[in-house]
């Protein structure tokens, strides 16, 4: 019974988001039909890739409960990209660049995991601390200068487009989401994550290795941040020390909009995926109509508040 209700929540959000997304599309179609071509699809997906990856990491950490949150995720994106580029300058063979970037992210995530698990710091405090450290170090060691020298073959991957879909989105974002969805729905690990998010104490009592699962999720969140950093390298052609700026808030928005409940235990990755697409489509639509960009911030904020209120209201109706 409980699992049934767990699955219903995200499905509901998913339907709501798809509906909203359709409204945006139809509205745009009515106002500016010329927007609809393959190029726009490519643009939307191109700008979704990074947000999708960090949104997934953020969502997973929150899903596992225990007041989980990863405020450092944007800083980890910047710092892993910078670490990879600096390693390249120090003589790392370029072939290893992707691996180093993702590993660097995973290591930064492991740091968070250790602070939360080993030192028993609250996730909010631990990751607020590492947010300052990661984003600050990325800026300070480079003095703010972008790090160039990304190998050409990586750019080929990062800027490639197949059938209108950007290659990084196709080869990184989609597999990550598919894998995460599969793990959450079908494996014991997935059930553990939901269980500890729903009620940590009983999860511990039934023998779920809560600490280990949580640690791995933070590592995963870091690795996804590293992957996002890699996408930024391959796409922009340089390592930017502030590429992850604001991503902590944007990923949080995507996860919340996608129906992940802040206390954990409820939500699914499909919702995050839909929320990211909705956010980027909305932004693109507003840009295509040449609406002042400042309205984006407000509309996204209002949307977030509305979805939260809707969630509350639907709960009240049900009970």
């Amino acid at each position: 019974m409980k699992t049934l209700r767990n699955l219903q929540g995200p499905a509901l959000t998913l339907a709501l988001l798809c509906g909203l997304w359709l409204i945006v599309i139809v509205g745009l179609l009515a106002l500016k039909p010329s927007v609809f071509n393959l190029g726009t699809v490519t643009t939307v997906l191109q700008f979704s890739t990074i947000l999708a990856l960090v949104g997934l990491g953020q969502g997973l950490v929150i899903l596992a409960g225990g007041t989980g949150i990863d405020l450092s995720i944007g800083g980890a994106v910047s710092l892993s990209a910078i670490i990879a580029m600096l390693a390249l300058k120090l003589g790392l063979p370029p072939v290893l660049l992707p691996a180093v970037c993702i590993l660097a992210g995973a290591a930064l995530g492991a740091m968070n995991g250790w602070l939360v698990n080993g030192l028993a710091l609250l996730p909010f405090i631990a990751t607020l601390g590492t947010f300052f450290v990661y984003s600050g170090v990325a800026l300070a060691v480079t003095g703010g200068a972008a790090q160039s020298g990304v190998p050409a073959w990586l750019l080929l991957w990062g800027r490639g487009v197949v059938l209108g879909i950007p290659v990084p989105f196709l080869t990184l974002a989609i597999p990550c989401f598919a894998l995460a969805g599969l793990v959450l729905m079908t494996t014991a690990w997935g059930r553990w994550i939901y269980a500890m998010g729903f009620n940590e104490r009983s999860a511990k009592l039934v023998g779920i290795p809560v600490g280990r699962v949580r640690f791995i999720l933070y590592v995963l969140s870091g690795a996804l941040a590293g992957a996002a950093g890699l996408v930024s390298l391959a796409w922009l052609g340089s390592g930017r020390p502030n590429i992850g700026q604001n991503l902590e808030l944007e990923s949080l928005t995507a996860a919340m909009l996608g129906g992940i409940v802040i206390t954990g235990g409820r939500g699914g990755v499909g919702g995050i995926f839909a929320a990211v697409l909705l956010l980027v489509t909305l932004k693109t639509g507003l840009l295509q109509l040449n609406i002042n960009t400042v309205w984006q911030v407000g509309i996204v904020g209002a949307l977030l508040v509305f979805v939260l209120l809707a969630d509350r209201l639907s709960q009240r109706w049900r009970s």
């Binding site: 071509n37 726009t40 643009t43 930017r240 604001n246 040449n290 960009t293 984006q296 911030v297």
Partner: peptide
């Protein structure tokens, strides 16, 4: 004349705006 820019000094936001102007033709 179209005037459109980012609300934060964030290069990716700026790129997104330019890309959308390109898509608009």
């Amino acid at each position: 004349f179209i005037y459109s820019g980012p609300v934060d000094t964030n290069p990716v936001d700026q790129l997104q705006i330019v890309q959308n102007l390109i898509d608009q033709g």
